[in-house]
Design a protein around this nucleic acid. Structure first.
Lengths: 341, 341
DNA sequence: GTGAGTAGCCAAAGCGCTTTGAAGAAATGA
DNA sequence: TCATTTCTTCAAAGCGCTTTGGCTACTCAC
C-alpha cells in the first residue's frame, strides 16, 4: 500500500493525503479524519526511503559501533546505547549502527554522513587530539560528542563529565584518610577521560607535595582480567600502595579479586575508589565490601545526548552546546583510614 | 556531489556511470576506470535513500532494541550484537535499531518492515507460543529467529542452542557426583530457553527417579541481585540443595556471593554449574573458584545469524534454515562430589 | 455586481538513483 | 558488399514521497 493507492482509494490527490498526514492546516477537518481512518484500516505506512529522498530528513541518528573480533563491544557502550534508545523511542527516531573497524572510524563516519541515511552523527571514546573532530566539523551535519578531546580547541558541541574534578575529589578523600601511597588503574592513556582522570589525581597529590609513582599507574583496556593482573603486580611491591583508584567498575572487579587473594581486607588494609558508570551489571553496593565510587550514569548521558541531537534535527528545542556534568562522590565501605606504616 | 553532476563532469550518461559503479559487464574497461578514478577524487558516495527507493534494497537488517527505563539493555544482548556487527562489517551492511517498548514489539516490527528501511528482520528473546512468529510469517520479508518458540510449530528459520540437552548433561554430571538435591536458578519461565532448560533438568532427574523441588526453582530476571536473593533463600532450607544450576553467569555471580556469605565452600559443600554465554565481562575461569559451565558463545551466534541473513538478502549463499548448536560442558572446580548427607 | 480574499483541493515537478529499451559504432560472417 | 552480431552508450521511466504553484469555489465588503 502506497500513497498513490491510498489516495485513489479515497478519491483524493496524493497532495491532500500527504498534507493530511503531516498535519498541514490547509486540509478540511472532515477530509483529514477520513484519511486518518483509512490509514488505520489499511495499515498504510509511508515509505521511509521515499520520505527521506523527498525531504532530506532521515529520522535517524548515525552511530559507529566500535567492533572487531579483538575489541569486544563493551558494557559501557551498551549502557550508553540503552539511554540513547530510551529517548529516541519517544521521538520515533532510530539508529543506524555502522559497525566499523576501530582503525577506520573516520572513514566510516564519512561514509555514513554521505549515505544520506542519517541526520546527525554522534561519537564517543574521545581521544586526545581526536582527528575525527576536524572531519565532523567539515561535514555540515549536526553532531555531538560524548566526552571531549584533550588538546583540541573546545569549540564543538559536547557532553562530558568532569573527570578531572571527580578523580581530584576522590584522591582528596583518600588523602584526608591519611593515605600516602597511591595506585591508579586507568584506561588507555590515549583516551581523553584517562588523561583527565590522571591529571586530577596528580593535582590533588601535588597539593600535599606528593607525586604519583608511575610504577603504580596502569593504562590498560578496562577488563577485569587486566584489573587482576595489574593489581597482583602492584601488591608485590615492598612499599605497596594503600589507596587505589580505578577508572571503571570492571577494572575494580579484577583488582578486588587480587586484593582478596592476597588476603588483604578492603577498606582496612587497602582502600579503593572506582569510577561507577552505573552499569546495570556491576553495582558497587552489591560487592562484598560495598565500593566507594565517583558516580555518573552513562545511561543518563545517553538520554541527554539523544535529546539534544533530536532537538537540533527538529529545530524544536535549543540546548546548551556544551555541558560538563559533575560526578557524585559516594562513600561506602571500601575506603578507610590508612593503615599504620 | 550526485550522480548527475558526476556524469556531467565525465561527459557520460548517468546510466553508464551507475553501471560502471555497480560492476555491470557492459561498460568499457577504460570508461570504468575513468569513472572509478573520478569517484576517488571527488569522494562521491551514492545516496542510500535514492538507491533504496530505486532498488528496494536497503543494505540493512532491522533489529528491535528491547528498551525501557526498567528493562535495561542487557549484557547478553550486547554480546550478541557484537557478533552481528562483526559479520555485517564484512558485507557493508548496517543495522537499523528501533528502540521499542517491550509491550509493543510486534507493532515495532511491523512498522520497521513497512518503513522500507530494512531488508530483513531478526528477533530474539523468544517466548513460548511467541506471537511475533505469526506476524513475521505474514510479512513476506526474510527473517531469522534466535532461539525457538516452545509450543509453536517449528516451521520458521532459526538458530538455537540445544538448551534441553545442555542442562540435561549438566544435571547428569552432578548426579554422577552423587548429588540428590538440586536447585535451578532460571530465567523468566515465559522465555523459551528457560522452559527447555528446566525440562532438561527434570528429564535427567527423572531417569534416577528424582524430582525437582519447586521450592528450589526460581524464575527471575537474570541479574546478580536476583541470584543473591534467591540463593540466600534457598540456603536457609534445613535440607538445602547441594547442587545448583544457573541459567546465566550473571545469576551465578549473585548466587556465589550468597554461598560465600554463608561460609560454604564452592565445589565442596555445594556444587554449581552455570550456563556461560561467553560474556566478555564475566569469564568462568576468572572466578575465585573457576566455574563448571555449559558454554555457547552468543557472539558466535551473532556472527552466524548475520551471515545467514545477509546471504539470504543477497541470494549468494544458501544455508540450512534451522540450526541447533550443542553447548559444551566444561568442567572446572565448582563441581565436586556431593558432601555426605 | 464586482473585486479581493480565503478555504480546500489538485497536477506536476523533483529528490538521486537503477533499469528498461533503443540506438550508434564497430566487428564479424556470408 | 550487405546483413548480422557484439560492444558500448544513452534517454527516459519509475521508485514513493513532499512541495510548489496554481485553480476553483465560495464568502465578504463595498
Amino acid at each position: 500500500m502506497n500513497l498513490k493507492q491510498l489516495s485513489q482509494m479515497l478519491g483524493l490527490s496524493q497532495t491532500t493525503v500527504s498534507r493530511a498526514l503531516n498535519g498541514y492546516p490547509e486540509v478540511n477537518r472532515e477530509t483529514r479524519e477520513r484519511v486518518l481512518k483509512a490509514v488505520r484500516e489499511t495499515g498504510y505506512r509511508p515509505n521511509k526511503a521515499a520520505q527521506r529522498l523527498a525531504t532530506g530528513k532521515a529520522g535517524s541518528i548515525g552511530l559507529i559501533m566500535p567492533t572487531s573480533s579483538n575489541n569486544p563491544f563493551d558494557a559501557h557502550f551498551s549502557e550508553f546505547l540503552s539511554g540513547l534508545g530510551e529517548e529516541a523511542l519517544r521521538h520515533d527516531f532510530h539508529f543506524v549502527l555502522t559497525p566499523a573497524d576501530p582503525n577506520d572510524e573516520s572513514g566510516a563516519l564519512k561514509r555514513l554522513a554521505a549515505s544520506g541515511n542519517v541526520d546527525a552523527l554522534f561519537i564517543s571514546y574521545m581521544r586526545g587530539h581526536d582527528p575525527r573532530l576536524e572531519m565532523l566539523k567539515s561535514l555540515s551535519m549536526p553532531f555531538l560528542v560524548h566526552g571531549r578531546s584533550f588538546g583540541s580547541e573546545p569549540d564543538y558541541p559536547y557532553l562530558d563529565i568532569d573527570n578531572e574534578a571527580a578523580f581530584y575529589e576522590a584522591t582528596k578523600l583518600l588523602l584526608q584518610l591519611g593515605h600516602k601511597r597511591f595506585a591508579l588503574l586507568n584506561g588507555p592513556l590515549y583516551l581523553d577521560f584517562a588523561i583527565r582522570r590522571k591529571n586530577g589525581v596528580v593535582a590533588a597529590l601535588a597539593e600535599r607535595g606528593l607525586t604519583l609513582d608511575e610504577a603504580c599507574v596502569s593504562h590498560t583496556v578496562m577488563t577485569d582480567e587486566q584489573g587482576l593482573i595489574v593489581m597482583e603486580r602492584i601488591l608485590q611491591f615492598e612499599k605497596r600502595p594503600t589507596a587505589v583508584l580505578c577508572s571503571s567498575m570492571v577494572l575494580a572487579l579484577g583488582a578486588i579479586r587480587a586484593i582478596n587473594q592476597a588476603n588483604l581486607k578492603l577498606g582496612e588494609d587497602i582502600s579503593l575508589i572506582a569510577h561507577d558508570d552505573a552499569l546495570t551489571l556491576l553495582k558497587p553496593e552489591n560487592f562484598t565490601v560495598p565500593l566507594t565510587t565517583t558516580r555518573s550514569s552513562l545511561r543518563a548521558a545517553g538520554v541527554r545526548i539523544a535529546e539534544r541531537l533530536i532537538g537540533e534535527i527538529k529545530h524544536t528545542d535549543s540546548f546548551p552546546r556544551q555541558e560538563l556534568w559533575k560526578a557524585e562522590l559516594i562513600v561506602r565501605a571500601s575506603t578507610g583510614v590508612a593503615p599504620p606504616d
